[in-house]
């Protein structure tokens, strides 16, 4: 079997952000369902949170390449 074990690290690092992003958007959907008029404000916050959570997975991907 060929490949790089660093890719496994990326896989592991994607778990946490995956869960986090799921929670963020679940909360966003909940909030919008309860208060549709707050959608605009919530959207900005949700995407900001999404970007911040995503950073961790990106580190995983980058480190996978760094230790190639």
């Amino acid at each position: 079997m060929e490949g790089n074990i660093a890719i496994l690290g990326y896989g592991l690092s994607a778990i946490g952000p995956g869960i986090g992003i799921g929670l963020i958007f679940a909360a966003f959907i909940n909030g919008t369902a309860r208060q549709p008029e707050a959608r605009g404000v919530l959207q900005g916050i949700a995407i900001l949170g999404f970007a911040l959570a995503e950073a961790l997975a990106i580190f995983g991907l980058v480190l996978a390449f760094v230790f190639q």
Binding site: A51, E54, A55, I58, F59, L61, V62
Partner: peptide, 13 residues
């Protein structure tokens, strides 16, 4: 320190 890295790497990745 990390902000420019995440900013660029997010887009690139």
């Amino acid at each position: 320190l990390v902000r420019p890295l995440t900013l660029s790497l997010r887009l690139f990745a």
